[in-house]
Design a binder for these strands. Structure first.
Lengths: 201, 201
DNA sequence: CCATCATGTTTCCACTGTAAACATAGTGAG
DNA sequence: CTCACTATGTTTACAGTGGAAACATGATGG
């Protein structure tokens, strides 16, 4: 139960702390390094070796913590979803909930994609590992907020369709911006999101 | 002008025809092979070598026709956009234009993504090569249809915002389906698209 | 007929993910 | 305390990748 806990500490891979064999919680360190690398521009091809070098460990050491590279990327993706959820929750609160709050979560979604393009892309451009059913996957916060928001804004209509509509809108906007199909322009984003999410500015 | 013409002939790489040195228009053959491979499931990592083998030529031969792998992928992506545009145009006509036609183009967009996931992803998940300004890029048909449709459905509102809204909606829907965030369900897609695109069933 | 050039082949290299064998460092039982 | 055990990390090795360089060949135009 409590053994498979993720949720990275951004504490720079605590040099000497709790469960520390040789390195001191490598798993967290390598994820942290991966996030940093994704944050900078040199995203594409974050190689397994480069990542290991960042952390000061030899490449194959990572295989003690992840079965393969895909698993490592999955972990990074999960952390991305968690951060997205946190930003949305924050936006919702700051706007005081309701219609305005819902719109704010939508804008936060797109802004996150713009601010962390590599992380966002990694988080979503990845075949879902077919949920077992339980086990939080980091995207939960975002999804619950979505449902709640939809419930408030479209109380009468089909929640399923409306929720999917809202999600697809912001996700498409984010993707089109990431792939340079449309230029980043926050005012424009706000207007477009407003068309569906309603609410005042 | 007429020298850089793409637009692949699907004629199985015409064995003996016009400009045929050793192979007989390899460029077209390799693109065709790439599309086939994308069409089947074995999409991920369509390797340069495997592609060359498909076509019966040795790997480095491809470099006579494409500066590097990226360029090859760009060509495939362009063909994908062309096909998408064609399907949308067809859907528009069959529905008789107008609101219903516009909605049909939206549904066609998502259906294309579902039917050709690898090709769709490749076509869009690729940094735009910063248009020179002229030079059709295959996505033109789709974009023009979008503007025209928006003009008919939202004559009063801001065309820019409405067009972006419509595009983002279908694109997001497509992406979420591709990445298994939501299940493919044509009826649901039609309903969601209808929320924005309006029009009868 | 031959020089040229477009096309294709061979060979090679740096780099990648990862398997296998080995090394080491903490831990718990006797 | 000691010693086997296990979790962690290192070295080495290998197949596969995209791509450069040198060489081969076949069409073509003077």
């Amino acid at each position: 139960m409590a053994s498979k806990d993720n949720s990275v500490n951004i504490k720079e891979a605590l040099p000497k702390s709790a469960r520390s064999y040789h390195h001191g919680d490598l798993r967290a360190a390598v994820i942290s390094a991966g996030l940093k690398r994704l944050g900078e521009g040199d995203a594409r091809e974050l190689g397994l070796r480069a990542l290991a070098r960042d952390v000061g460990v030899s490449a194959t050491a990572l295989y003690r913590h992840f079965p393969d590279k895909e698993a490592l990327l999955d972990a990074l993706a999960e952390e991305g979803l968690r951060r997205l959820g946190a930003l949305q929750a924050q936006a919702w609160l700051k706007a005081g909930g309701g219609r305005a709050g819902f719109k704010a979560t939508g804008i936060a979604y797109v802004r996150f994609a713009h601010d962390e393009p590599a992380l966002f892309r990694l988080s979503f451009t990845r075949q879902m590992p077919e949920r077992k059913g339980e086990e939080g996957d980091g995207g939960e916060v975002a999804y619950n907020l979505l449902r709640a928001g939809v419930g408030e804004v479209f109380p009468a209509e089909s929640v399923d369709a409306a929720a999917l509509h809202a999600w697809a809108l912001v996700h498409g906007l984010a993707m089109l911006i990431l792939d340079r199909r449309v230029a980043w322009d926050e005012a424009m984003v706000a207007r477009v999101v407003g068309l569906t999410f309603g609410g005042v500015d």
